[in-house]
Amino acid sequence: MRVLLFILALLVPAWTAQAQEVMPPTAVFADPPGDPTHPPQLVQVRYRTGGVDVPARFFVAAGSEAHPTVLLLHGFPGTELNLDLARVMQRAGWNVLAIHYRGVWGAPGQFALGNTIEDARAALTWLRDPDRQAQVDTSRIVVLGHSMGGFDTVMLGDDAEVAGFVTISAWDAGAESARLSSPEARTAAEPEFAEDVSFTNMTFASMADEIVANAEAWDWSRNASEMAGRPVLVIDSEDGLAPKGDAVVAAVMGSGGPAPTRLTFKTDHSYNDHRIALASAVTAWLQTTFH
């Protein structure tokens, strides 16, 4: 089984990649050897954020040692959870904490874009709890986010203890303020967001108000520049968000690098016909970067 991957900084600096046909990592298509003493697990957990306990899934890799760990952040509202990626990373020896946010899919608390950033920070605190040191290698925690989860990932660039970052079709929420600043613009934009908003306990009006109020705090390039000094993988598709990924790369490079790995796939926002390629790219990058 061969998958066409665009390999960038795994081998060469950003912007000079060439397409290569490569075998996907074994974890993409094969189960690991059994470990009857310390088998892999899927554990239902709750993490504390904003005064409530929010559900999450903790995929624990096999083996007795502390494992590198991914914090997996889904998009808005979470139709695509990317749990197939979680399983591949688990088979590759990584723990994965896949969280929900407050106020979405029945989780307690109030949903807000700013709250999703706080929720992600709270999930990192949960992973770093001393009670989990036997399972989690806190020196190798990587934040991976898709769409709105990519927005949260960029906003976590100021967390100096995060070892690396992965953005997949990241959404620049702050940039939406430009088209939500007038009543007429909001009326035109509301149908685009209505269905997703309906899965949360937030209103479109409150979301628009929050975006406009935080346009400066959520400045994309400034926050992305704070990821500098750590490995970064930026993945995009043909969904129109690639310029935001380019801006992440430019911001990191402008703050001293190192050069992020930059991948682009010819598919849609959910990577529906590129799931194997996506899992291969993410897992290969993790294994190569944090071996």
Score class of each variant (00 low, 15 high):
E118F: 04
A247T: 03
L97P: 07
D246P: 01
A247W: 00
L81E: 14
S177T: 11
A208C: 10
E210M: 02
A259R: 07
M23P: 00
T283W: 00
A123S: 13
E65G: 09
S169W: 00
E80G: 04
M23A: 12
G93M: 09
E190V: 05
L4N: 07
G240D: 11
N82H: 04
D159H: 14
E184C: 06
H74F: 03
E192L: 14
A123N: 05
G149P: 03
H74Y: 03
E21F: 09
T125L: 11
L180Y: 06
T125P: 00
F29S: 13
D273F: 08
S225L: 07
T288C: 01
N223I: 02
A173M: 15
G240I: 08
F29W: 09
L113Q: 09
L10C: 02
T203V: 10
D158W: 09
A175Q: 14
S147Q: 06
R186P: 00
K244F: 08
R2T: 10
M207Y: 14
A188N: 09
Q133L: 14
R128P: 02
T187H: 07
K244I: 08
A185M: 15
L4P: 12
E226F: 03
D239A: 13
L71D: 05
A27P: 05
A134W: 05
D196S: 15
P40R: 12
V249E: 10
S182P: 01
R275I: 07
T203A: 08
T37P: 00
V70T: 06
A228F: 02
L81N: 09
A175F: 06
A134G: 12
E226M: 15
R46G: 02
V104S: 05
W218K: 10
R57A: 12
D84H: 13
V282L: 07
M155H: 06
V22L: 12
W218L: 10
L263A: 15
D236R: 02
I7L: 13
G78Q: 09
Y271N: 11
S221Q: 11
Y47K: 04
A194Q: 13
V162C: 11
D119L: 05
W126Y: 14
E238C: 12
A194T: 13
A61Y: 08
T288R: 12
S182V: 09
G229T: 07
A188F: 06
A228E: 02
V142H: 01
V234S: 04
W220V: 08
L71M: 03
V136K: 03
Q18P: 00
W285L: 08
R222F: 01
A56Q: 03
N201P: 03
A19P: 14
D137Y: 05
A112D: 07
A277W: 00
V142A: 05
H100N: 15
S225I: 04
A250D: 12
A228H: 04
R128T: 07
M202H: 11
P13H: 03
D137R: 11
S280L: 08
Q110W: 02
L180H: 05
S64G: 15
D119I: 03
F76E: 07
R48H: 13
M155L: 12
